[in-house]
Design a protein around this nucleic acid. Sequence first.
RNA 1: GGGCCGCUAGCUCAACUGGCAGAGCAACGGACUUUUAAUCCGUGGGUUCUGGGUUCGAGUCCCAGGCGGCUCACCA
Length: 491
Amino acid sequence: MDLNEFQLQRRTKLERLRSAGIDPFPAHVEPRTHTLAALLERFAELAASEAEVRTHGRIRLRRVMGKSSFAHIEDESGRVQIFLSRRDIGEENYDRFVETSDLGDIISVTGHLFHTKTGEPTIFVHSWTMLAKAISPLPEKYHGLEDIEARLRQRYVDLIANEEPRRVFRLRAALIKAIRDFLDDRGFLEVETPVLHPVYGGAAARPFITHHNQLHQDLYLRIALELYLKRLIVGGYERVYEIGRNFRNEGVDRFHNPEFTMLELYQAYADYEDMMELFETMLAFVAERLYNSTSIEYQGQIIDLTPPWPRITMRDAILERTGIDIREARTLEALNDAVRSRGLRLDRKPTWAKQVDELFSEYVEPHLIQPTFIIDYPRELSPLAKARPDDPDFVERFEAFIIGAEMANAFSELNDPFEQEQRFLDQLQAAAAGDEEAMQMDVDFLNALTYGMPPTGGLGSGIDRLTMLFTNQTTIREVILFPHLRQSHDA
RNA sequence: GGGCCGCUAGCUCAACUGGCAGAGCAACGGACUUUUAAUCCGUGGGUUCUGGGUUCGAGUCCCAGGCGGCUCACCA
């Protein structure tokens, strides 16, 4: 380790402790009688009895004033002031505090509780010990750590210095627990399926490739959970879900990280309408759990998650925003003509369905701030979804949008093995034509369907984006503890 | 990947059209037994992201590269 000036100073203090026979990283810790929050909660009672308490924490503020000192120590639960007096604690103990402790050190104190004359609840320290000497200095006590790159590369420092990320990641955990509770109560079984896939599928995305040395086999990190969960529906579990990491070899931006957490769930004897009911109910449940309300605030706007949410067909949504009826303009040429005649600016896509998707992304999606279900997608975009009986160019699929971002994707699952085979063949053709995100043929999945999969509704939802919504964050990296960054040269 | 912007002390930030690299916090030394981002006096601390170039002189201008942010493209 190369130590800078500050670290060398602290190491000298550490050595001073050692030569006084004190281990700056002791193996044994006397258990605390209270966390800091618990001390504050029971302060009146504890102060009145003058009971001796023991508690631990990191020194966050330190004010040495000659023969007495104040400091604030912090643990996960909170922050409390401590007071040390040279007369009361003993010269050796006191001087050791002044000479060897620093901001950032983790210490243990015993003492009784009292109010200072300004009324602050304070621990009157009887004794203190070092639990872990901090060698590196903390960021500035008032501004904390603000440099975004430093915050992400050294999240541990960010979490010490800044309250906001601590709040966000507690809420993230509460959100995931709320989802589990909701699904468990509805009779869903939580399962775990492979991360390493011999064939990737279930989504349109490019995979990460890895290799099993012993088996001489290339494997893909999963891009979706879908195809294994549906195998379980074939197997007879009627309600399954998995919350797990997906990996997609795509760009990184404020809505995308190469690895991200996905919820997927499948329910037998259900369709996409049931999935809409489930999703809107689930998010309202989460909001109630986290905020005691089905309305939440996001970036200054009130987002009302109260069910039911509006359902708009993709056709109507596009018609409303652009005046183009995709049921009229049914070919790529006709669609391009319509786009051109209205003077809309749009990238050219190779197929009708992709052009429809482009039109939607460009002109509709950014406007979907309040929760909205967009339903009935072009079949080509959805190779795993069941076609609408009344119009087989469209499928029974919806995506849920909130704050202009896709929060869920769901369909009535295609369970006809022959049609599924044809859809895979269409994908292979697209791949041959240069579509890098086209799906692979999954022969074993087709085999599973030949044993009969009940009519099933399936839904996927990005946990990271839900967390953004529920923690009022504008970028995904603020809701992922260690988001992906390019390798730094000083790392 | 393209465009634009940024990178200065441990942290938060200054430094005019090129002219001695600074402040606050933190640190170190001193004063101080009820402070609250303690206060007061003093001191030290720099690969100005890296490497080239222009210039008497570069944090500042030019070229190349690194990392980050925003944005466009792709994706959830």
